[in-house]
């Protein structure tokens, strides 16, 4: 168990080094000279050259990469030339907003899908089961951009219930949160439903009932725990997918998170900002997957000892 964990961690570090390498190479392949963009259109050749030296772009690629990696190891994520401040500072502010949004979306989507999936599984074949299935099918087939627009159209433009743009109170988070969590909720509802249907067919459910345990207690305590196992494992992986959606959702709802930042940074050719934003997102993604694996061994007694 412990060895496996160490192995996983080692692999994770390797993967993250790979991510920095890809991000670095991609940014260097790109057209457009960041020094020119920084210096502005009116700059002379000398001024551009001056920027190039200050930004370290006159060095060989290898030196640039090693400098960057050296900085990361010392907790320095680089300097953002478009924000004129350290990348760490820009990212930390944005990261908090992304966290708020994803956790909110994840939370409501998880609760909603588990409830709906459980009820649908128990009431297999009933109208509510049909509704759940329909939601699951449609939710998986919907474009997140389109969903965002439709939400804005209905709740922002027509009903005027919710603000459509930017930060604010909880009501600002509702639409982007739903938009972000929709696809995930659909997948989880479907898994929860079929998981519950399968578990309720098991012998041990009848056996539990035969011991005099009431139907609701059997379903909600004894069967649910079994049905939840695969759901919990899937949660970590799904959180990663959710995270991918922030690029689009944050741009639609003008939410100042890391996704919106990445889009801006790419357009600005802010090399170090893009590299570090990609790295941070990957770290989150990899950590989620790791967490999911660990969680699985915790909740499933059959795995923990093997």
């Amino acid at each position: 168990m412990r060895n496996n964990l160490l192995k996983r961690l080692g692999l994770t570090v390797f993967v993250l080094i790979g991510v920095t390498l890809i991000a670095f190479v991609l940014m260097r392949l790109g057209g457009g000279d960041p020094a020119v963009m920084m210096a502005g259109g009116m700059a002379t050749k000398e001024e551009v050259q001056d920027y190039r030296v200050r930004m370290g772009l006159d060095q060989s690629y290898l030196v640039q990469y090693l400098t960057y990696m050296n900085g990361i190891l010392h907790g320095d994520l680089g300097y953002s030339w478009s924000y004129h401040t350290s990348v760490g500072e820009v990212l930390s502010v944005r990261l908090v907003q992304t966290f708020n949004l994803t956790l909110f979306g994840f939370f409501i989507a998880s609760i909603f899908s588990m409830l709906l999936g459980t009820i649908a599984g128990i009431r297999h074949g009933s109208p509510i089961d049909f509704v759940a299935l329909l939601f699951a099918i449609i939710g998986q087939s919907m474009s997140i951009v389109w969903l965002g627009f439709v939400l804005i159209l209905i709740f922002g433009v027509q009903l005027k219930w919710l603000p459509t743009q930017g930060l604010g109170g909880l009501q600002h988070m509702i639409m982007p949160g739903i938009c972000l969590g929709f696809g995930y909720a659909a997948v989880q509802t479907r898994m929860m439903r079929s998981g519950m249907v399968d578990v309720l067919k098991e012998d041990y459910v009848v056996a539990t009932r035969a011991r005099g345990i009431s139907k609701s207690r059997t379903y909600l305590v004894y069967a649910l725990r079994n049905a939840l196992l695969p759901i919990i494992t899937n949660m970590g992986n799904q959180f990663g997918h959710l995270l991918a959606g922030v690029v689009v959702v944050e741009t639609i709802f003008n939410w100042p998170g890391i996704g919106q930042l990445l889009v801006q940074a790419i357009n600005m050719r802010d090399y170090q900002l893009v590299q570090s934003a990609l790295l941070i997102t990957s770290i989150l993604l990899v950590l989620c997957n790791l967490l999911a694996d660990i969680l699985y061994t915790v909740v499933d007694p059959r795995i923990s000892f093997q």
Binding site: A23, A244, V247, L262, L278, T281, S282, L285
Partner: peptide
């Protein structure tokens, strides 16, 4: 380990 959209966006 890099979200698809982000990678595609960069490329």
């Amino acid at each position: 380990s890099i979200p698809n959209i982000m990678l595609a966006l960069c490329v």
